[in-house]
């Protein structure tokens, strides 16, 4: 459900024109979703907080060049996606291929090992563990879908992937999560 009042794009244009209060409204709308998206994608909370701040700083720096060619959320999460890619590259990590056929089988998360299942007695924790166990791109697609409400096509744009691949990522992610939760 779209937020009441000016759209994200109108707020960003107002901020481009010098209205700091518009930015505050925009930040209030998106800070939670973006923060959770990054914390749950990266899993390292300190690094996620740092990247979260970098994303907003990047947005602030690029405000004069902002043009509402797409939804603001796509613009924002594209910045976040690129920051995370840079982060993984710095850490020597690689994302899996978008081609699902080439994607490696997800390793059973440690949280899902039988000896730890007893510890995950709460659904929320199990859910978080299942998300953390997803491949990077599937996890990203699921989080984008849940946190920003993006469609498959929008996820494809934000992640720079093919729509079909994005759709596959999302479907696989949901299927694996359902399976992980059903295991209990």
């Amino acid at each position: 459900m779209p937020p009441a009042g000016p759209s994200d794009e109108q707020l960003m244009l107002a901020y481009r024109g010098g209205d700091a209060e518009s930015f505050a409204a925009l930040y209030a709308r998106h800070k939670g979703g973006l923060f959770r998206f990054m914390v749950r994608s990266i899993k390292d909370r300190a690094a996620a907080e740092e990247l979260f701040q970098e994303v907003w700083m990047k947005l602030i720096d690029s405000r004069s060049r902002y043009e509402p060619q797409a939804k603001f959320s796509i613009f924002l999460y594209t910045i976040a996606h690129n920051r995370m890619i840079d982060h993984w590259r710095r850490r020597g990590l690689e994302t899996v291929s978008l081609d699902e056929d080439d994607a490696p089988e997800p390793r059973a998360p440690q949280a899902m090992q039988p000896e730890r299942r007893a510890e995950l007695n709460r659904t929320g924790e199990r859910m978080l563990a299942a998300i953390a166990a997803l491949p990077v791109l599937q996890r990203e697609a699921f989080l984008l879908h849940e946190e920003s409400g993006m469609t498959v096509a929008e996820i494809a744009v934000a992640t720079g992937s093919d729509p079909q691949a994005a759709k596959s990522c999302l479907r696989y992610a949901i299927a694996k999560l359902r399976e992980a939760l059903a295991d209990e």
Partner: peptide
């Protein structure tokens, strides 16, 4: 899974981070 996810606690950035971002803006 989506419903279960939305039932999770809604983490928010720390207030200090909010203040830093808004001040930069």
């Amino acid at each position: 899974p989506g419903a279960l996810y939305r039932a999770l606690p809604r983490d928010e950035p720390p207030p200090a981070m909010d203040a830093a971002v808004l001040a930069a803006a």
